[in-house]
Design a protein around this nucleic acid. Structure first.
Length: 280
DNA sequence: AAGAATGTTACATG
DNA sequence: ACATGTAACATTCT
């Protein structure tokens, strides 16, 4: 579910819900696998009694900065969700961990596919420093993007999905950005002219900002689709140009949108707007 | 009812 | 070091 716009939407909603400043009174871990790289009991002990001083996003991580300078990182992966519940109310299926707060609420993490994870790294700065640049940061210029692309020969789609190369993009927004830039996902980075790089840079930021403005993309109506807190759905789905629109006309040229698989991921293109690379 | 699903990582191979 | 491919994680939806 969550790429940069969805994660940012959730972070904004958590802040609006008054999570900043709350003390965590108790942590109930119902499935220990939800804690990564650390025994669940250790996580519980270190987090209990701590106070949330700030809530931020870095790449696709939700970051809680705690009073003792440690940082709880949450990655939702495909189907993770957060919501508030009354303490003592019955646990729903797939609720793996719950945080009781000092204001009487309980924040619960729900994840059908159980891919989502909580991290409490010894050195959060180093942990997050491995990730690529934030595409919406003012410092991320077309020039800087071109420098990062320099010397790379990977195909554009897997490269843009690589969180160490650039942070926050996922399957939806990569397809949307490549379509907008008129670049085929199988093109390799070394075939781009600076004009292509500039268009791609602009397209990435445009796709992410649009997603943010629409409070994320919600696909389908089922259990596993994107909701922020309070079951809010994003509006971005209606504005997608190619993603999961196989067989529909391209909004730019009316050619039929095609689906292909690149690097194990479903990929959507307009074969006219995104000419395939020369193969020899 | 098989195949796909908004993500990442480990491992193997070139 | 880089690039690419495959499997795995677990469950639900189409």
């Amino acid at each position: 579910m969550p790429e940069l716009p969805e994660v940012q939407t959730i972070v904004n909603d958590l802040v609006d819900a008054g999570l900043v400043g709350r003390y965590i009174r108790a942590v109930a871990i119902r499935w220990p696998g939800v804690i990564q790289d650390m025994p669940a009991a250790t996580f519980r002990r270190r987090v209990t009694g701590n106070r949330i001083q700030a809530i931020q996003r870095r790449a696709k991580f939700i970051v809680w900065r705690l009073e003792d300078a440690s940082q709880v990182l949450l990655h939702l992966r495909m189907t993770g969700r957060l919501h508030f519940a009354r303490p003592g109310s019955r646990y729903a299926k797939h609720e793996h961990i719950a945080f009781r707060l000092d204001d009487g609420r309980q924040l619960r993490f729900h994840d059908t596919r159980k891919f989502g994870r909580f991290y409490l790294p010894a050195d959060p700065g180093a942990f997050l420093a491995r990730l690529g640049p934030e595409p919406l940061a003012p410092a991320f210029s077309a020039r800087r993007f071109a420098q990062r692309l320099q010397g790379r020969r990977r195909m554009l789609k897997p490269l843009l999905l690589d969180q160490q190369f650039i942070a926050g993009l996922g399957n939806i927004y990569v397809d949307e950005a490549l379509w907008d830039a008129g670049l085929h996902p199988l093109r390799t980075a070394d075939t781009l002219q600076f004009e292509d790089v500039r268009r791609l840079h602009r397209a990435i930021r445009k796709a992410l900002r649009k997603g943010l403005r629409n409070m994320g993309t919600t696909l389908g109506t089922g259990e596993t689709t994107f909701y922020s807190l309070a079951r809010n759905q994003g509006r971005n789905r209606d504005e997608l140009n190619v993603f999961r629109r196989t067989g529909s006309p391209c909004p730019r040229c009316r050619q039929t949108i095609e689906r292909l698989v690149v690097g194990q991921r479903s990929t959507h293109i307009c074969p006219t707007c995104q000419p395939p690379p020369e193969q020899t």
